[in-house]
Lab assay of single mutants.
Amino acid sequence: MLEGKVKWFNSEKGFGFIEVEGQDDVFVHFSAIQGEGFKTLEEGQAVSAEIVEGNRGPQAANVTKEA
């Protein structure tokens, strides 16, 4: 698991990027966000996630919002 913060997230398109210190930004799709209801993230929000290899490079999986 790694910790980072949301760089930006487009709720209409359902994707965005997470900033991780010392690494390239990581793509995040709404389907990777854990929880019930409408899955979205806010800019600057702290999150933790796993990194997996997607079709277009590294992407976030099992994204959870930090308190």
Rank of each mutant, 00 (worst) to 15 (best):
D24A: 14
E19R: 11
F9L: 03
N55K: 15
W8K: 01
H29I: 04
I51M: 09
E19T: 13
G35S: 09
I33T: 04
I51P: 03
E50H: 13
G4F: 04
Q34A: 12
V28D: 07
P58T: 09
A60W: 03
E12D: 11
S11G: 09
A67C: 12
E50F: 11
F27A: 00
E12P: 04
L2K: 12
S11E: 09
F27C: 08
G37Y: 05
A67T: 13
N55F: 14
L41K: 00
E53S: 12
Q59I: 10
L2E: 04
E21Q: 12
V6H: 01
W8D: 02
V52F: 10
H29C: 09
Q23I: 11
N62M: 11
A67M: 12
D25L: 09
A67G: 12
T64W: 13
E66P: 11
W8I: 02
S31H: 08
G54N: 06
G54E: 04
I18R: 00
E19P: 01
F17M: 08
V28M: 04
G57S: 06
I33L: 07
G57N: 04
Q23D: 07
A49I: 15
D25E: 04
N62E: 05
K7R: 10
S31A: 06
G16C: 06
E43H: 14
E43C: 15
F30W: 15
R56K: 11
E21G: 08
F27H: 02
E53D: 10
A46E: 09
Q34D: 09
M1T: 12
A49M: 15
R56L: 09
E12T: 13
R56G: 09
T64M: 13
V52H: 09
A61V: 13
I51D: 00
I33Y: 01
I18S: 01
Q23V: 09
F9D: 03
P58L: 12
V20F: 15
G44S: 05
E19M: 13
K13G: 06
E3A: 13
I18G: 00
K39E: 04
V28K: 00
E42C: 15
E21I: 11
V26A: 03
A61S: 10
G44H: 06
V20K: 04
E36K: 11
S31R: 07
A32C: 10
G57T: 02
V6K: 01
M1V: 13
V6Y: 00
A49L: 15
V26F: 05
G22N: 08
V28C: 07
K13L: 11
P58M: 10
K7T: 03
I51N: 04
T64C: 10
I33E: 06
F15I: 08
H29T: 00
R56F: 12
L41C: 07
Q45K: 04
E50N: 13
A32L: 01
W8S: 00
P58D: 05
E21W: 11
H29R: 02
E42S: 12
W8A: 00
T64N: 11
A67N: 12
G44Y: 04
V28Q: 02
V52W: 09
E36F: 10
V63W: 00
I33N: 03
K5M: 08
G35R: 00
E19L: 12
D24T: 10
F9N: 03
F9M: 02
E12Y: 11
K5H: 11
K7M: 01
G35L: 06
G37L: 04
K7Y: 02
T40R: 06
G16L: 04
A60M: 05
E53P: 12
T64I: 15
E42D: 09
N10M: 03
P58G: 05
G44W: 04
F15N: 03
I18C: 04
H29Q: 02
V52D: 03
A61Y: 08
G16M: 04
Q45T: 09
K65C: 10
F38G: 05
F27W: 04
N10V: 04
K13Q: 08
G57L: 05
L2C: 10
G14T: 02
Q34I: 15
V6L: 02
A60Q: 02
K5A: 03
F17V: 08
F30K: 09
F38V: 06
A60P: 02
E21N: 10
F38Y: 12
E12S: 13
V26R: 00
V47Q: 00
D25N: 08
Q34E: 11
K7N: 04
K13I: 08
G14A: 00
G16D: 00
Q59T: 08
I33G: 04
A32R: 01
Q45D: 12
A46T: 12
K5P: 00
I51S: 03
V6C: 07
K65M: 11
I18Y: 02
F30H: 10
V26H: 01
A46Q: 13
F30E: 07
L2P: 04
E3P: 13
A60C: 06
L41I: 05
E53M: 15
V20W: 07
Q59N: 05
Q45H: 08
A46R: 15
E36H: 11
V63E: 03
G4A: 06
V47N: 02
S48G: 07
E50Q: 14
D24W: 09
S31Y: 05
F15E: 02
F38E: 07
E43Y: 13
Q34P: 06
Q59W: 10
G37W: 06
E19I: 11
A32V: 09
G37S: 06
G14V: 01
G14H: 02
G44N: 06
V47P: 01
M1Q: 11
A60S: 03
N10W: 08
G37A: 05
M1E: 07
D25G: 04
S11T: 12
V20D: 01
I51K: 07
F9P: 03
G22A: 05
E36C: 13
V26M: 06
Q59E: 12
I18P: 00
F27P: 00
K65W: 09
T40F: 12
K5F: 11
E21T: 11
I51G: 02
A32M: 06
T40L: 06
E21A: 12
A67L: 12
N55L: 14
N10C: 11
F17P: 01
G57W: 06
N10L: 05
K13Y: 08
F27M: 01
E12H: 12
V26Q: 00
P58W: 11
K13T: 07
T64E: 08
N55E: 13
G4S: 01
A60F: 02
V20T: 05
G4I: 03
M1D: 05
I33H: 02
S48V: 13
A67E: 12
V6M: 03
V28T: 02
N10T: 04
A61C: 11
G35A: 09
L41G: 02
V28Y: 04
L41R: 00
Q59C: 08
E3G: 09
F9E: 03
V20C: 07
A32G: 10
G4N: 00
K39A: 06
Q23A: 11
G57P: 04
I18E: 00
N55D: 12
S11Q: 13
V63H: 02
E53W: 15
N62Y: 10
E36Y: 09
R56W: 15
V52K: 09
F9Y: 09
A60I: 03
V52G: 06
N62C: 13
T40V: 08
N55P: 15
F15V: 06
I51Y: 07
E43A: 15
